[in-house]
Amino acid sequence: MAFVKVAARDTQQDTANPRALEYDALELQLHDESADVRRWAARDLVDCPSASRMLVGRLHEEGDASVREVILTALTIRGDDIAMTGLVECLRSEHVSLRNEAVEAMKQLPEKMAPIIRELLGDPDPDVRIFAVNILESLRHPEVESWLISVIETDPELNVCATAVDLLGEVGSPAARLPLHRIKERYADVPYIQFAAEVALSRLGGE
């Protein structure tokens, strides 16, 4: 046997993106029975105007994790209001995988997430606030530390504060020392907060 060549396509130039005329076809493909076809449709819809609503709708129905990941990437690339709202809504989903996948996608969008993070950290649902703190874990944004400090200073829910204390130990600076001492006082009878805050303080240095 040997090395063989089967005609591979050699594109000398980048190609135009799908035209609006193809939008209807892509909508059908987004519901095709083949996951391969659905993934490609989601990728092609990135450039179609007003595709965000369709992608968000499909995201909540989609059973294949590989297609969901592609839809989430498409929404993060689009980054318009509908896309961002759709991503945030995933945090309220009962579908654990979708929720975690959305958190991962949102970590990639520091600039677009900034205004939304403030809202999420003030959400009435403590679970959503915990997911917001999870997003901060690898969100490369200069305000991450100040958001976390604000959480441990003001959030009324113990579990939300505990999540933020853990993270401050990883991403905080000596500026977080005083707030960490204050939360230790506030939850003086909660052993976990005492422990987590001590670990964070020992990592931060600066004393």
Partner: peptide, 16 residues
């Protein structure tokens, strides 16, 4: 077989 592809462009990778 050497070919030109831009991984960031779906049009050039579709046939791969």
């Amino acid at each position: 077989d050497f070919t030109r592809v831009n991984l960031a462009d779906r049009g050039t990778t579709r046939d791969y």
